[in-house]
Design a protein around this nucleic acid. Structure first.
Lengths: 222, 222, 222, 222
DNA sequence: GATGAATGAGGCTTCATTCAT
DNA sequence: CATGAATGAAGCCTCATTCAT
């Protein structure tokens, strides 16, 4: 019998359901990272995964839903990497925790350029649905940062700043560096990046003796 | 006079043509900002512009080329807004110029959310061609920032920093704030944004007396 | 006034209506010969003619109708070139007249490759309408040939042949040679072509002593 | 056995695939023959084949490529039908072989009017690409004819003629007859056509006693 | 479960023709 | 008459998804 024959053949190559799903996800990740969401086709994904078209739809509902899943996993990963700052260990401890957070996020992203690219380039501006998902993720992250800043302000470690804007600035400074990495630009090695980003966020750019004299005023008007 | 007559006629025609083209560009801008490049269809654009399908192709070669044009115009606009920092006016002058740059860019973008959205969301990760275009734009911008930083370092206004990373941080802090604006998040008003961004970039986040004690070390391990 | 100004300008370049029409026809001929009916666009024709789009439609109803006109002119030209054979001048006269017909047609076509190409390549298989037009033209031509053959048979100049088939063969032999010319193949010069075509039609290909012995029979079966 | 099983399966699939493809080709053939290349739309083809739009593109790359395939198949068919003349069997043999070639080609074309129509009407003057394809086909065919003529000349079966022109005449005489068949003109039955075409090509049209006296001279001048 | 042939909605683009100036 | 911007029907092709085997 034909189908029997096939069954025998395929049992030998069969992967457990979860393995296969994971494999498909990984392939989709790479394809999306390579080509972007819209350029990527289901054909590309199944070709890379070595499965049939129908098989893909046994594991995922749609092209959209794989990407969704990838984003979810990615968000989960990052969320579990970034830790809330514990103020009880004093100023030095706070800095160490900040450093640790930045360092681990950067390391995570360095270790998976495909993910990085999807997060910072391919998932941006896809459509209202994905935009909302992304916003939600960043909202959480920003909340964490903002809470840390507020804590720091209370402890008089952090200057008086508008924490909403400041947390955006922090996030932006990290994202931009990672974006360049994602786009394949030549960058200093990881340790330097971390050190520079932290220094920048802690002390800003100006020499202290100059900074204390400067008083940026919102200009009279344009 | 014949040639005169021609000239008058010619100018009129060119004007009308330019107006029509500008109108189409504006409509395309809005559609792309609303729906993103891929979701947007030529039908959407011409419907909004109130012209026939063929008319669109009278002014643009393809969907891609309108978007291209929009990006070019946008880049041109920003490039002509950001000015190189002139160090001859001393530290206070440098700060004022920085402030002016940030202020004007933010104002420019505030005045056109659609453009902002296209730049920061819709044009990201579209395809290698557009990616390169975007990269090129940011390269120019970063070069300008980096040169300013180097100048500042020479004048001992700027701390010793890795200028490549620092300029990315600066760019990122501004982009992120604008991104939130583009995505329609509730934000403080413009003046505050500018002031906070500048303060952040000048002094960082830490209280000076704390900052000078902190010595972030690249941690022994990951 | 604008329109006045234009009027003055254009009166100087104005061509009489018929001239302009002829000019357009000539340009259309060249364009169609170059690119074929479907590849050719109205744009191509008006570009070559140096007139505006609307102007074209002042002289012709449609793309189809120009081509129609071109074919009509072409048919008229050929029809007026081919003359009915007059048997009263005896066998030698008949041959001379045949020769004259072939010679003049070939010369006509040689002198206008564009026409030739349109007749033999571009007008073939366009659509039922044009096919019928072409058929009608060839029907007339074939009728002429057939009548000549019948005359020749009566005069015992022509062998006993099926005149319908024979006239097709005659027509085909001439058309094929001209087709090669139209397609730009390297060919012997006109005089040789005429002589060879006539020789072929008069005596066939076999040596007379062989020919008289051969008796082609429709084979028992394929 | 596994590999065996695979083979059986594979053959079945390939067969089905080939059948489907052949069906589509046949439908395309009919549509093109009916309406010509340009009038025919993919919609027409799939409607006739009873398949969906996408299915068509599963088997062919484009409208052009189906037509290309049809031409290739047609050329292949004709090329495999026409056989090189073998002179070793003497004059009578040569005639028999000529007859056989003409007869088989005509039969082939009679049995498939659609093909005939595509070859002689629809594929003519389509565009430079197809023109070249067609030229190449006829070049091969003409070469074969020309070689046969040269052979015949050496054997003194064929008169002294310009073989290039003569082979065009032969080809043309056959094509024209077939063209009328393709266009649906009422024609004598096949056997008569073959006999007449052969007679015409062997002996020409003139009565032998007249022919030997006639000496067509290239006329003094046009 | 796995397969991959089949589907068909939907998008981009072309170009013959019209019509207001 | 001449112009050329505007029109919109029509065609080709892609690709996410389905379903019979």
């Amino acid at each position: 019998m034909l189908s029997e024959c096939f069954f025998v053949f395929f049992r030998e190559v069969v992967l457990r359901r979860e393995q296969r799903r994971a494999h498909l996800l990984q392939c989709a990740l790479e394809v999306f990272a390579d080509q972007g969401y819209h350029q990527a086709s289901i054909s590309d994904i199944i070709k890379r995964a070595g499965v049939a078209r129908g098989t893909f739809y046994l594991y995922f509902d749609s092209k959209r839903s794989v990407f969704d899943q990838l984003l979810d996993d990615l968000f989960e990963l990052i969320n579990s990497t970034v830790r809330r700052i514990d103020p009880s260990r004093g100023p030095a401890g706070v800095v160490a925790q900040m450093e640790s957070n930045v360092d681990e996020v950067i390391e995570l992203m360095f270790s998976n350029r495909a993910m990085l690219r999807i997060l910072l380039a391919e998932a941006v501006g896809l459509d209202p649905g994905f935009d909302e998902k992304l916003s939600e993720f960043y909202r959480r992250l920003l909340l964490l940062i903002e809470q840390s800043l507020k804590l720091g302000t209370d402890m008089q470690v952090i200057r008086k700043v508008n924490t909403q804007v400041a947390s955006l600035c922090i996030l932006g400074s990290i994202k931009e560096v990672l974006y360049q990495v994602a786009m394949g630009q030549k960058m200093p090695k990881r340790e330097i990046l971390v050190k520079e980003i932290l220094g920048y966020n802690i002390r800003g750019l100006f020499a202290p003796e100059v900074a204390e004299k400067v008083e940026p005023m919102t200009r009279g008007e344009n």
